[in-house]
C-alpha cells in the first residue's frame, strides 16, 4: 500500500481543561474524498487545526505523505472557515487569491504577469473571474467561500483540507465547489472536508470519519456511514428514522 496523504496517530488537542479531541487515529488514503462529520462541538475543525499545527497538539502526531507538516507544507492547501476572517480588510479578490502564491514566490519577490495569470485561472475555475477587482467585503457568503477555494487552488497542493466549505453558502456555490472538488479528485488529489449536512454525504464523498471528541468510525461509506455508527456519534440528536434513511441510501 502506498503512503497515505494524511495519517493521524493519537491526536489529542485541548483548549485548557478537558480535551476537545481525544486520541484520534485516522488514515486518509491518497485520492480519497473524505467527509469529517459529527455533532456540534465534536472537535471536527479542531482535529484539522491540530493536524495543520494551527493549534498545538497535546499528544499524538500528524504525518502528511509520511512527512511532518513543516516538510510537506507546500503539498497541502487549507481552506479555513469563512467566519475566521476580517472581511473589511483592505484587499481585492485577486489579492486574496495571490496569498496562495506566497509559498511559491516567497515573501520578498514581486509578482509577475504569470502569477497574475495563474490567480485569474484559479478564479475562473470557481466562476469568480469577473469579480477579481472587487473588494472582498462586497461579496456574498458563497462568493467569499469560492474566493477561498481559488486561493487554495493557487497553492496547487496534492491534499486539500477544507473547514466547513458548504456552511452558509447558496446552492449555486455549493454546486460550483463540489464540481471543483470532484475535478481535483479526478486528478488524483486528496480531499478532506469538515461537513455538516448528512444528507449530501453519500453524493459528495467516498469516505467518512465520524467524530465525537473521539473517533467513532472511519472508512469507506459502506463500512462507516452506517446506522449504528451514526447513532453512536450523534446519540439522540438525530431522529431514528432519519438515520435509517441515510444509512439505507449508502446500503
Amino acid at each position: 500500500m502506498s503512503i497515505p496523504a494524511l495519517t493521524l496517530k493519537g491526536v489529542t488537542v485541548s483548549y485548557g481543561g478537558r480535551p476537545a479531541v481525544f486520541s484520534v487515529d485516522v488514515t486518509f488514503p491518497i485520492g480519497s474524498m473524505t467527509a469529517i462529520i459529527g455533532p456540534n462541538g465534536a472537535g471536527k475543525s479542531t482535529l484539522l487545526k491540530g493536524a495543520l499545527g494551527i493549534v498545538p497538539l497535546l499528544a499524538g502526531e500528524a504525518r502528511f505523505f509520511g512527512l511532518s507538516y513543516q516538510d510537506a507544507r507546500r503539498r497541502v492547501a487549507y481552506v479555513p472557515q469563512r467566519a475566521s476572517v476580517d472581511w473589511d480588510f483592505p484587499a481585492r479578490v485577486i489579492d486574496v487569491v495571490m496569498m496562495g502564491l506566497y509559498a511559491e514566490t516567497g515573501f520578498l519577490r514581486l509578482f509577475r504577469q504569470r502569477h497574475r495569470d495563474r490567480a485569474m485561472e484559479c478564479l475562473s475555475r470557481v466562476g469568480m473571474d469577473a469579480f477579481a477587482e472587487r473588494q472582498i467585503g462586497a461579496l456574498s457568503g458563497g462568493q467569499q467561500q469560492r474566493v477561498f477555494l481559488a486561493r487554495a487552488l493557487a497553492e496547487a497542493g496534492e491534499l486539500y483540507i477544507l473547514d466547513e466549505p458548504f456552511a452558509g453558502v447558496d446552492a449555486a456555490t455549493e454546486r460550483a465547489i463540489i464540481a471543483v472538488l470532484k475535478d481535483l479528485k479526478a486528478e488524483g488529489r486528496t480531499i478532506i472536508a469538515v461537513h455538516h449536512d448528512l444528507s449530501t454525504v453519500p453524493d459528495y464523498f467516498d469516505r467518512v470519519v465520524l467524530l465525537n471528541r473521539e473517533r467513532i468510525a472511519d472508512g469507506p461509506l459502506e463500512e462507516a456511514f452506517t446506522q449504528t455508527h451514526l447513532q453512536s456519534a450523534y446519540g439522540g440528536r438525530l431522529a431514528a428514522g432519519q438515520v435509517a434513511d441515510l444509512a439505507a441510501r449508502v446500503g
Binding site: 507544507r73 480588510f89 496569498m99
Partner: peptide
Amino acid sequence: AFDPEYARSQG
C-alpha cells in the same frame, strides 16, 4: 493581519 490561522498554516 488578515487571518492568523491561515498564516500559521502557511508556516
